[in-house]
């Protein structure tokens, strides 16, 4: 982010025009880290999933049931990660610049670019030729966990198959070639038989000519749906909205409070627990049917958990 001198993501935007090389490399990094094929992140994710799929052979019941939960957590974090990088890349590199600094940013020097390029190439290699990489690092893995995967290099066409080919296999290179082939053949056919003309015009955007970069989604806006869906569970997110009545000219106001629930629910109750205990017995006789039920239900579940453990 040195090229623009801005630190806040909300003041960037449009860097793909002013820092084209960085934008390309950064995109590669985003794809890799979001565990998307055909780069290396996906290969790792794929191998973890394959490991999870072997879990039914584990003997312990509780572990058996926990493994799918781990799987879902992994998948959720991967997709949330992808969403996060769409946001980061979309707000910082795409769209129109939100500040002068973003407009005049330049690519960093050759060395930084070179470093990034080397890393990206490595990501690509690991993604396309995972078998070679797996074989290379498996001696080290053997020392750590005491087991190793079957050697991958002798499998045909550089694909990987951790257990057996009939069970699962993945060939990054073939998929990649496949994608490139389809994309280029589509392009060739369209340019040949369809049209290759294009023309530049102002963005459509419902016909209202508005040059303000304010009309772009901000990072905070982009995250809002996810924040509202998941944030309410993990943290206690409160949006406080002050919308003036029609005809009122004062500015509208939105403030967001994010509280860490763990703190609130773990520590604060402890201090309150003592007083609650004192008055708790009295309240018990005033509960509604629903609260009685909840009490009984909680006790039942507690007992069952005891039995399970």
């Amino acid at each position: 982010m040195n090229g623009s001198g801005e630190r806040s993501i909300e003041r960037l935007g449009g860097l793909i025009h002013s820092m084209p090389k960085t934008a390309f490399l950064f995109l590669g990094g985003c794809v890799a880290i979001s565990a998307l094929p055909p780069l290396n992140g996906f290969v790792s994710e794929w191998l973890v999933f394959q490991a999870i799929l072997l879990s039914p052979s584990l003997p312990q019941w509780t572990v058996k049931l926990l493994v799918p939960a781990v799987g879902v957590a992994l998948a959720l974090s991967a997709t949330l990660g992808a969403g996060c990088y769409i946001r980061a890349y979309g707000v910082a590199f795409l769209g129109r610049p939100r500040s002068e600094a973003a407009r005049t940013a330049t690519d960093p020097d050759r060395w930084s670019l070179g470093t990034m390029a080397v890393l990206l190439t490595m990501c690509l290699m690991a993604g396309l030729l995972p078998s070679l990489v797996i074989d290379t690092i498996s001696p080290a893995a053997k020392d750590f966990v005491g087991g190793r995967m079957p050697t991958q290099a002798e499998l045909s066409w550089l694909s990987i198959a951790p257990v057996a080919e009939s069970r699962s296999s993945y060939n990054g290179l073939l998929v990649f070639v496949f994608i490139l082939f389809s994309a280029y053949s589509a392009r060739w056919i369209i340019h040949k038989f369809g049209s290759a003309r294009s023309r530049r015009a102002p963005a459509w955007d419902c016909g209202y000519i508005e040059t303000s970069p304010m009309t772009q989604y901000t990072g905070s806006s982009f995250a809002q749906p996810i924040r509202r869906t998941l944030g309410v569970i993990a943290f206690s997110v409160k949006e406080r909205l002050d919308m003036p009545a029609p005809g009122d000219m004062r500015p509208a106001r939105l403030s967001i409070e994010i509280k860490d629930r763990i703190f609130d629910y773990l520590y604060a109750p402890l201090t309150r627990a003592v007083e609650t205990c004192a008055s708790g017995l009295n309240i018990l006789s005033l509960l509604t049917i629903q609260e009685y039920l909840a009490l009984v239900f909680g006790a039942l579940v507690f007992l069952l958990v005891l039995v399970a453990i």
Binding site: C206, S212, S220, F222, P225, I256
Partner: peptide, 30 residues
């Protein structure tokens, strides 16, 4: 508007359906 980073959504005056023209300006957070 004030507060959190908001974005504007300019809707209209030309709408995608066959309705009359009007411009709506939303200040929104997500």
């Amino acid at each position: 508007t004030e507060g959190e980073p908001l974005h504007l959504i300019p809707v209209g005056p030309v709408h995608a359906g066959i309705i009359e023209p009007g411009h709506f300006r939303f200040s929104a957070n997500g």
